[in-house]
């Protein structure tokens, strides 16, 4: 498989959120606005990039019987780094994302890529795969967060978009809004892809 194909596959054809429906817990929980979605996506991408790289480096050392615990320890290391960095430099975002930063450890996208790709491939293509998958994940979180923010609070990145007469639809930034907008988005995509 060419590197370009590995990259674009994660971005769209095997998009973790819209196509594989992986890692939906953070996707639905933190996308109350575009900023949170983007932040969560970038944090996950960073962890994915590092863990894919290290797993690919160590793929011949890790005995296959204990590979899952080993992957988890590698992932947890980078999640801890992300958590401390975010607490130090982006404190507001850190507070907004809350428990979902440590929960990146059990994001099945990351473990899935480690198991299915990085543990069998050389380092460089694993990194490309991580960038592709991570950008796809970030894109999905950003789109969902932006849609929910626009409808649910009439803003995008905290900038008011409409006049004073606009009434935001509160439901969209509440949990049911996440499920409804995700479902409608998937339905729309299926409709246009299956033509």
């Amino acid at each position: 498989m060419s590197l370009k194909k590995i990259f674009t596959r994660g971005l769209w054809k095997e998009n973790a959120v819209f196509k594989l429906l992986l890692g939906l817990c953070p996707v639905l929980a933190v996308t109350t606005n575009a900023e949170n979605g983007l932040g969560m996506g970038l944090a996950t991408t960073f962890v994915l990039l590092c863990s894919n790289g290290v797993v690919a480096l160590m793929r011949n050392i890790i005995p296959s019987g204990v590979r899952i615990p080993a992957f988890i320890i590698i992932i947890a290391t980078f999640v801890t780094i992300v958590q401390l960095v975010m607490e130090a430099w982006t404190y507001e975002l850190y507070q907004a994302l809350g428990i979902f930063i440590p929960l990146i450890v059990c994001n099945c996208l990351i473990l899935g890529r480690a198991e299915a790709f990085a543990s069998k491939r050389p380092v460089f293509s694993s990194l490309v795969d991580a960038i592709g998958m991570g950008s796809g994940f970030t894109l999905a979180l950003f789109v969902l967060g932006a849609i929910r923010e626009i409808f649910g609070s009439g803003e995008l990145f905290g900038v008011t978009l409409f006049g004073a007469g606009y009434q935001p639809m509160l439901l969209m930034i509440l949990p049911p809004g996440a499920f409804i907008s995700m479902g409608l988005l998937l339905a729309l995509m299926n409709k246009f892809e299956n033509r």
Binding site: Q167, M169, L170, L171, M172, L174, P176
Partner: peptide, 10 residues
């Protein structure tokens, strides 16, 4: 219910 949750004031 959607309206009640979305627009509690109105």
């Amino acid at each position: 219910v959607v309206l009640l949750i979305s627009f509690p004031v109105q």
